[in-house]
Nucleic acid binder design. Sequence first.
RNA 1: GUGGGCGUAGUGUAGCGGUUAACACGCCAGGUUGUGGCCCUGGAGAUCGUGGGUUCAAAUCCCAUCGUCCACCCCA
Length: 420
Amino acid sequence: MTRQYKAPRGTQDILPADQPWWDYVRDTAARLAREFGYAQIETPVFEEAPLFTRGVGEVTDIVQKEMYVFQDRGGTDLALRPEGTAPVCRAYLEHGMHSLPQPVRLWYITPIFRYDRPQAGRYRQHHQFGVEAIGEAGAAVDAEVIELLWRLCGELGLTGQTLHLNSIGDQNCRPAYLEMLRGYYRDKLSGVCEDCRARFERNPLRLLDCKQEICRPVIAVAPPIADHLCDECARHFADLCSYLDAAGIPFALNPRLVRGLDYYTRTVFEVQPREEGGQSSLGGGGRYDGLIEQLGGKPTPGIGFGSGIERIVINLKRQEAPLPDARPLQVYVVVQTPAARVPAFRLASDLRRAGVSAVAGSSERSLKAQMRHADALGAVYAAILGERELAEGTVALKHLADGTQETVALAEVAERVGPA
RNA sequence: GUGGGCGUAGUGUAGCGGUUAACACGCCAGGUUGUGGCCCUGGAGAUCGUGGGUUCAAAUCCCAUCGUCCACCCCA
């Protein structure tokens, strides 16, 4: 009669079997971020909704149809975080981080919510590792941030990924380019998909990354934005490329890469895995020199990226990347006689206190059952407490892999089984 | 938002008009005297996603609905 509860559509439980992969990715990301001089930040899971509508852009799909918005009991419009950059910029402003040494380098790992139709590698709740460098306009930070994302993939053991790079200009050169692009499209609108006709009006830059078959030939000969940057943007882009070359990071110039958040300026980039699927992108980001001002701050440049942990894990599994050894359970304490219940519990407790992982078996179960259990849990040792051991203050310590067994004083178990 | 595939024990599957709904793995217990892995035996566990319909008879056919997966779209 009672209904079966399930995780809501598009969400998933990350079960113990998957945790080693998650730990691996999280630990590697955190280590790398610190190595690059980034400090961790955590922002709330929800924010005032206008932060995103204004920051990310009213006409983006994320804002128009993918945000989880709700009112709290006080009537405030809130939104579950649909992306990571705007909240960090809000925190930068709110806490006066402009008075810290610039740029302020921050990283985070956080859940992201988007009301999307779920499919492979796409969820309504997913997790992003992201990085933001705020307060520095020079192309070296762009290269640094890109290097961090690139290194993450490499450190994790992913192979065959490609870095796509483009520049989409700034306030000075983009308007003129968009006019040129419109001019180019104007007489071709009849030969282009329906979405693109809408894009022509609303968001012409997006014409360039339409995937429809009909639009491909039109895009192929469209004027690339990289050829129409103003001097400063062109200079910035050229600098970035030389920094990347210097760091030995291979990149592919992709004139069709524009990305879907309105706040991007100049640099945009994306890392695609070896095996490309529908939505494969492992991570992407770009420069957002106008965002902080948009949010009410003084003009402040910034750059960052977000990378999807679920997708990274999917690719690690697909590529059969090796995982660092998981730490096995060290000791399973076998309760052989009812009289040993308390001493067995005590032994397990003492072991844990000494930093040795241990679980106590149940006196309800037979010796045989407990031994099986110890084996099934992958314990390294079984510590058996029976009448004899109880009388002597010892345990029978059996190494399960090779079957050897010895009698050890209770007080010495920890050091006997401990690492070394 | 649009299109397609699939929903049978915890997991993976078989059955495709009439069966006590099967098998494997997993789980629990036992295989006499204090010891796991292999093996053997037994047990628990499924109103066959849900609701309608067709039929003497439905897990099997039809419809709807929900869920899920995949593609478009969008993005991480």
